[in-house]
């Protein structure tokens, strides 16, 4: 019976592999084309490029506009990431250890910004920023980004707290560690992969954020906004170069995210 089934499933299996390959190509092709195009030596975008060079990377990395927007985005993400990690972790602990009755409702409220239409969120934050007269400044970007990055930390840390053995903390406390030090020495190291995942998510999301930030900016430009407004006027190969740089940063962080899991479970065995 079962061997017949596996014979029978051979064809659909091949079909499935083919389908997946096509989907992957379809998804990745634009990116691959973009990356290749970014290395053009011409002054226009063409595929395949008639000649190759790093002309547009030089241009981007010497252009004040691009450098300003890249550094603004990096600074925002660099401030948002640790704040998001600390606040999100604290919220996850509160949800995990607090009264069970409140858990469900509170969790929904805290995670909502992640799933709410960002355009609605952006509009709301814009109104608020105007009222407080903090629009077009860090004071607006950072809290705005936090509202959408914190839920990712809550989810990743919350999930690992759920499987965390609380008796480990109790053992530490019975050995003389206060609640804080028990969490510091025992819980946090054990849930480290979740903390790293939460941080990387926060960084990527903040660095990549467009819709909400768009509402809050007037003169300042984060990288996604600079890219967008450049595109509005002209399609120059510099866009492809910037995109490739962004892609590289994001891919690097994502790879870290995937590798960290292996590293942490690996060093338990080695050490």
């Amino acid at each position: 019976m079962s061997s017949q089934e596996s014979y029978g499933s051979r064809l659909p299996y091949k079909f499935l592999v083919g389908l997946v390959t096509i989907v992957i190509l379809f998804l990745e092709a634009p990116l691959i084309i973009l990356v290749i195009q970014s290395f053009t030596a011409e002054s226009y975008l063409a595929f395949p490029p008639p000649s190759y060079g790093i002309r547009w990377y030089k241009e981007v990395l010497t252009s004040e506009d691009w450098l300003n927007s890249i550094s603004l985005s990096l600074i925002i993400a660099a401030v948002v990431t640790p704040l998001s990690l600390v606040l999100g972790t604290m919220a996850a602990f509160a949800l995990d250890r607090g009264p069970k009755k409140l858990k469900h409702g509170l969790q929904t409220i805290m995670i909502a910004p992640m799933v709410l239409p960002h355009i609605v969120l952006g509009l709301g934050l814009f109104k608020m920023a105007l009222q407080l007269d903090i629009d077009d400044s860090m004071l607006a970007y950072i809290p705005a980004h936090l509202t959408i990055t914190i839920p990712f930390v809550i989810i990743s840390v919350g999930a690992s707290l759920q499987t965390f053995e609380v008796s480990l903390e109790e053992a530490a406390r019975s050995l003389g560690a206060s609640r804080f030090w028990a969490v510091w020495y025992i819980t946090l190291p054990i849930i480290r992969p979740a903390l790293i995942a939460g941080s990387i998510f926060s960084f990527i999301i903040s660095f990549d954020e467009f819709i909400i930030t768009f509402f809050l900016t007037t003169f300042q430009r984060t990288l996604p906004i600079e890219m967008f407004s450049t595109l509005m006027y002209q399609v120059k190969p510099s866009i492809a170069a910037v995109s490739t740089l962004t892609l590289a940063v994001t891919a690097f962080l994502t790879a870290m995210l995937i590798l960290r899991g292996q590293v942490t479970s690996g060093d338990k065995v080695i050490k």
């Binding site: 008796s167 109790e170 053992a171 609640r179 025992i186």
Partner: peptide
Amino acid sequence: PHQRTVGLVFQNYALF
């Protein structure tokens, strides 16, 4: 708990 000097042993060991 941390201000009491008790040695506690759990059924699941609770080793770090």
